[in-house]
Amino acid sequence: MNTMLNEMRWAVSDTAVMTWRNVLRYRRSPDLLIFSTIQPVMFVLLFVYVFGGAIRSGGLNYVDFLLPGILVQTTLFGSTQTGVGLAEDLQKGMIDRYKSLPMARLAVVAGRIFSDVIRNVFVVMLMIGVGLAIGFRFQGGITGFALPGVVVLFGFAFSWMMAMSGVSAKSVEASQAFSFMFIFPVTFLSSTFVPVETMPGWLQPVAEYNPVTAAVNTARSLAHGGEVWGWMWRMLAWTLGILVVFVPLTVTRYRKV
């Protein structure tokens, strides 16, 4: 029992070291920082000013409607970086170094994911700032404070899913291509950018049961009031389900690399 506790303590310490390494990596690669900050900001501006006038957003200003959704979209797009980063580490042979060390196996993947959580917190805050500057306002009062936490939590679950693609892919490019092929439809086929009711009838159920819709609607109702729990428990169930499936799957897969 004692050795197990000791092992867990070391796993936490190893994960902290790997998180630090990956945060440094972000700070030192301008292209990654630009990808993860300028791109989402650009999305907000393009959607608000280009599509905003043409989208019926059910009683809310489009910027108010869009921002909670685009926060979710940003963390999901960001989660592809988890997979790509892991694939890159695997390809560069650094993984052989890690594997020859007496460190916790989980730490390489977990450190990568926690650094992405840190980045997501930063990016979400930045985007709320940009939103506020172009007219976004919280309509729902105090629950708005829970918004960043919910968005980051959901992104955390998706990072594990993408980590699985990263440790399974044969190359960085393959991981990238696969992630986007998955993330794009799953993000767009949801209530992220438009109300589900405006989609064709046959498509509505798909969007309705999409986990992204659960997350976006949770975020939206936290920001502006309305039915929170109905969406929140669905989002939490998805989050838990994804973690239960993908954490063991990814770690097992990584061991075999």
């Binding site: 390494r21 440094l24 990596r25 030192r28 690669s29 560069k92 042979g93 650094m94 993984i95 052989d96 170094r97 020859s100």
Partner: peptide
């Protein structure tokens, strides 16, 4: 272990 492809972290 020192391997064939130098495993150092470029970042």
């Amino acid at each position: 272990l020192a391997g064939q492809s130098a495993a150092v972290d470029d970042y």
